[in-house]
Design a binder for these strands. Structure first.
Length: 111
DNA sequence: ATTTTGACGACGT
DNA sequence: GACGTCGCCAAAA
């Protein structure tokens, strides 16, 4: 195991520990990593998650608005919504319902 | 080394 | 509340 100081790998770890039926935001992960406001980097990191040997539930990561902004990056645009609904997360019009209820904040839950 | 990008977020209008 | 702009920071071209 290599200690990857790259925040890139950090995102993979955090994303992987997101429980099913929960979603988090890029900004929340970014803040957990210490980057604070660089939520963009989180999405970018997840962009490379598909080439990882391990499965990364990137579909559980949405923007702060609860909108499935990254759906377009999945194999199928509807795949993200289906995966979320399959886990119990209701999605309507690319928006997570009860977003505040299913929102999982690493800074809060992990503590 | 410089420039552009990029699955966001906060603020201003 | 919808739309526009800036800020943030790291990786790829």
């Amino acid at each position: 195991m290599k200690n990857d100081d790259s925040f890139f790998d950090r995102v993979y770890e955090v994303t992987r520990m997101i429980p099913e039926g929960r979603v988090t935001s890029y900004g929340a992960i970014a803040r957990f990593l210490g980057l604070g406001k660089s939520a963009r980097m989180v999405g970018w990191a997840l962009n490379g998650s598909h080439h990882l040997p391990e499965y990364i539930p990137a579909h559980r990561v949405v923007n702060r608005n609860g909108l499935l902004t990254g759906k377009h990056h999945f194999r199928h645009e509807k795949l993200m919504q289906e995966l979320l609904e399959s886990e119990g997360v209701k999605v309507k019009n690319d928006q997570v319902l009860n977003f505040n209820n299913v929102f999982w904040d690493p800074n809060q839950e992990l503590f």
